[in-house]
Design a protein around this nucleic acid. Structure first.
Length: 498
RNA sequence: GUCCCUAUCGUCUAGUCGGCCUAGGACACCGCGCUUUCAAUGCGGCAACACGGGUUCGAAUCCCGUUGGGGACGCCA
């Protein structure tokens, strides 16, 4: 990239709610673009809506982005040379630019009251006309303006929009042009002196030297207004790239009705950041190599290109996200999964909250054993339940049936007897014992393994016994919050219950 | 109502200069194999260029229209 025009992008949410997948994808694409070109990613907070902005949302936002690994190098909570990065801390700046526009007559005072405008709007709608400001205060003589200002009449500041065409080249959508009459004269500063979104946005992007504005396509029509403001400021607008909306499975805009949509919720349910990022990146963007969909954040960053971003809206598919999460869980070793899975195990009372080498080594192997059965980390403790065996009532019918036939019972009893004579149980000794049972009873295949599995787990199916049994045996000797019963004792208990 | 955007399997998409497309991949679904079982995995199958006109020797790809979807029209962001 041209060093004179470094890539600078920003994520600029308003702290009025939880961060949801749509916003996260916007943040992600910004981060990706910056990462790809060695640019700067900054975090700005648009908190000019005093009614709805809350500090806790801002904290949550920072936490969520950090968890995802979408790190920014400038912004709230970390400063930078173009700060402050919270719009409410930048009012002086906006005032200065507003004064300049007014002095240059690129903006004018509008004395219409909110009620008056509301009424006019209502009438226009009633007459099926396009509701827009009629420009009533555009040409009030200077004397009268002064007089009304002196009198203390409240006013807003409006941009004096020129006639003609306004357009820009969107990096995703291409050239977009409209006639400026469609824009009418947007309010820059409210009657209480506070600046409006479109105005702040332009001033900020300009002052923060933003090179690319990457945001949701809801802003497509704002962009014309903003381009006009840049024009009035005699400034070069940044490049724009708009991202299509993410919709719910029913084709409607994503909302709580669609289940989990806030990323905090995905975290709580045990989704991996890698999976979320991978999935979200594929929602709108496609990798240059067809068929290569499982990509780590860094790999995506290397391949990212706005030219490969889709224009049409995408539907969020929880099933594919689950598949992606499963894939990431399965390609991550249990030991590496443990730090993120620990809270779930601790909450379920299966692991101590504090790491401990002996227990963690074991727990990592337990995770490896059961992880192929889960979509998210929060399902791990339940799957690990197989180590603890069922209470007598929890023995499933399949297992009960396997232990109820004389043949099955014979196998199981022989197996348990031999288990009880054995000391520590490794994979080898387990295999040896099974071999002895096989020789003693003459059973093999499913007639051999099914009763053994039933006696050991109380279930008709489950993870590989050769791995499970040694883990149970080992777990039984570990100081765990919930003790793992030794295999022999457990099998005896199950047999007695059937 | 006016304006803007958009349209390939159920879903995400490849298709970037029109021919290599009897439209490729992934998820989901179905079948088969592997395995003591389940899961995982391997293999195979089902399934789409919204519709109608043009342009062209040739169109998923270009143009126009229709229809569907989304958005804007705030002293919200």
């Amino acid at each position: 990239m041209n060093p004179d025009h470094p890539i600078r992008v920003r994520f600029a949410p308003s702290p009025t709610g939880f961060l949801h997948v749509g916003n996260v994808r916007t943040a992600l694409f910004n981060w990706l673009l910056a990462g790809r070109h060695g640019g700067t990613f900054l975090l700005r907070v648009e908190d000019t809506d005093a009614e709805r902005s809350e500090p806790r949302y801002e904290r949550q936002l920072v936490e969520d982005l950090a968890w995802l690994g979408l790190d920014w190098s400038e912004g709230i909570d970390r400063g930078g040379e173009y700060g402050p990065y919270r719009q409410t801390d930048r009012y002086d700046l906006y005032r200065r630019y507003a004064a300049r526009l007014l002095a240059e007559d690129r903006a004018y005072r509008c004395f219409c009251s909110a009620e008056e405008l509301e009424e006019a709007r209502r009438l226009q709608l009633e007459r099926r006309e396009t509701p827009r400001y009629g420009g009533k205060c555009r040409h009030i003589p200077p004397d009268e303006v002064r007089e009304r200002v002196d009198r203390g009449d409240p006013y807003t500041l409006r941009l004096r929009v020129r006639p003609g065409i306004v357009g820009f080249d969107d990096l995703v959508f291409g050239r977009i042009e409209i006639e400026t009459v469609q824009v009418s004269d947007p309010v820059l500063v409210r009657s209480d002196g506070s600046p409006t979104y479109n105005f702040c946005c332009v001033v900020d992007d300009l002052l923060m030297r933003i090179s690319h504005v990457v945001r949701g396509d809801g802003h497509l029509s704002n962009t014309h207004r903003q381009v006009l403001i840049y024009e009035a400021l005699a400034a070069e607008p940044p490049r724009f790239a708009h991202l299509s909306t993410i919709l719910g499975p029913d084709g409607q805009k994503l909302s709580k009705r669609h289940g989990a949509t806030s990323i905090e919720e995905f975290r709580r349910r045990g989704y991996l950041p890698e999976a979320l990022i991978n999935y979200l990146a594929l929602l709108g963007w496609s990798p240059p190599v067809d068929g290569q969909e499982i990509l780590a954040p860094a790999e995506i960053r290397e391949q990212f290109d706005l030219a490969r971003v889709q224009k049409s809206p995408a539907i969020f598919d929880p099933a594919k996200l689950d598949w992606m999460n499963r894939t990431w869980i399965n390609r991550t070793p249990g030991a590496d999964l443990l730090p993120r899975a620990r809270p779930f195990f601790t909450a379920a009372g299966l692991l101590p909250a504090e790491p401990s080498p002996a227990i963690d080594a074991w727990a990592g192997r337990v995770i490896d054993l059961v992880k192929t059965h889960v979509d998210h980390l929060d399902q791990l403790p339940e799957e690990a339940g197989v180590l603890y065996g069922p209470d007598p009532a929890g023995i499933d019918p399949d297992a009960r049936a396997a232990l109820s036939t004389p043949e099955g019972r014979e196998v199981a009893l022989d197996f348990v007897r031999r288990l009880e004579e054995e000391g520590a149980l490794g994979a080898d000794s387990y295999r040896r014992i099974v071999g002895e049972v096989k020789a003693a009873t003459g059973r093999k295949g499913r007639h051999l393994y099914h009763p053994i599995r039933a006696a050991l787990t109380g279930r008709g199916s489950g993870p590989d016994l050769e791995t499970l049994v040694p883990l149970c045996d080992e777990g039984a000797r570990l100081p765990l919050p919930r003790p793992v019963p030794p295999p022999a004792a457990r099998a005896r208990r199950i047999l007695e219950a059937v």
